[in-house]
Design a protein around this nucleic acid. Structure first.
Lengths: 229, 229
DNA sequence: CAGTGGTCTAGACCACTGA
DNA sequence: CAGTGGTCTAGACCACTGT
């Protein structure tokens, strides 16, 4: 059997894991490795590139490839789409619009999304339920200058996230995780005592340079996001 | 200038973003695309493979490449190494050991890590400071059956995370984000009022099938993890 | 069984950067 | 300026899987 890039990758990874190549060590260059493994340089390159993507090694032209001393460990999280998330848990999903207003973007939002003064925005708050129990409280702003159609959308029928996904793509986004405290309003909607800690996600999305939406998602108490890596 | 895989990738991405290829649409095969772009098939392949990795398209042999209808949006987070995290913020890092005991692994930990009964573990609690201010409270367990050396390590001098990184690699890990409430003890160490919401990370790591360590990290109030994607 | 993506090869040229 | 990784090419064979 031919040597595949996966063979090369796992062999190199094993050598690193077993300490044969210690953190900080310089690995042989691609030409030498290709000879060692009896394969083409492109094969070694693919293996090494993936190891670099995985944060295991660090590559620099001329300087060569080194084992990262403090491996940059990264985790990938699926960005939750609340309906899918709930239905994956075999629970019944229900959505409800709580409030809807159209207003000028408040200052903090203008700062968050770099909006022009006097930008109009639609402000929505919604609830998402799993098997009838409160699951997530959503507090969302949509930029009406970019998406005037949002003013006429029927958000009593469809959640703003689903509407947005179906309506407009986005080119980049920023997401942030934190912890919030349930105030009286949140506690009431989420059916929990005030003062509970709530896992919170904030997300801003842009199309090119134009801000589309900002959303803050408060999860019911005890929620956690988990991933393996 | 030659056509690079980045050219191809961004052109295809643009076509998808602009709606030229709608969600669910079948893209031309690699041979045709290579002809269209006037490049080798390997170049198209690299571009398409990256788009698939990014969750933009879905590829299946024989069936071809389609635009994902619900793009799998993923975010990558760097797993924080607390010293680096603090020093990247141009703050001075300080570490202190709070407590150290050796005991039999409690039941919840045995369950969490799938440990044998009577496994011995070392239990450490530590503080991490940024410019003298409390930054993170660390509550860690290390499996002494796998890492007996931990019993003799001097954790007053070096943080357990740094010691572990330098001592043993790990093959896989599970990480989980949530929100906790500051109890009196945490509040005292973190220098905040009790009842504050704290962003919390839990991580379990294994070497092959053997559990190495479990750690719970409580961040000071207001902490957030952010990434762009 | 035929079409599509997955991968390898051998060679080439280029871009970056450390010495 | 020389060594290393980054990328492209043209061609080949293979693996999977829908029809």
């Amino acid at each position: 059997m031919r040597t595949t890039f996966k063979d090369v990758k796992s062999d190199i990874l094993a050598k690193i894991m077993l300490g044969e190549w210690a953190p900080g060590a310089l690995l042989p260059n691609e030409v030498d490795l290709a000879e060692t493994y009896g394969c083409a340089r492109a094969t070694v390159n693919r293996a090494m590139r993936e190891l670099a993507d995985d944060g295991i090694v660090e590559r620099r032209r001329k300087a060569g490839t080194r084992v990262r001393s403090a491996p940059i460990r990264q985790a990938r999280f699926d960005i939750p789409v609340v309906r899918d998330e709930i239905e994956r848990g075999n629970a019944e999903y229900r959505y409800a619009l709580v409030s809807r207003t159209v207003e000028r973007a408040p200052d903090w939002l203008r700062a968050q999304l770099s909006l022009e003064p006097d930008t109009r925005a639609i402000h929505l708050t919604c609830m998402h339920y799993a098997d009838g129990a409160p699951y997530q409280y959503e507090d969302r702003w949509i930029n009406l200058d970019v998406l005037p159609a949002a003013e006429n959308a029927d958000f009593t029928a469809i959640g703003p996230n689903e509407w947005l996904v179906a309506t407009i793509p986005f080119s980049n986004a920023e997401i942030s995780f934190s912890a919030s405290l349930a105030d009286d309003r949140l506690a009431e909607y989420l059916g929990c005592p005030a003062g509970q800690p709530l896992f919170t996600i904030e997300r801003s999305t842009w199309w090119e340079t134009r801000a589309i939406t900002f959303v803050r998602l408060y999860f019911r108490p005890g929620h956690r996001m988990t991933t393996k890596y």
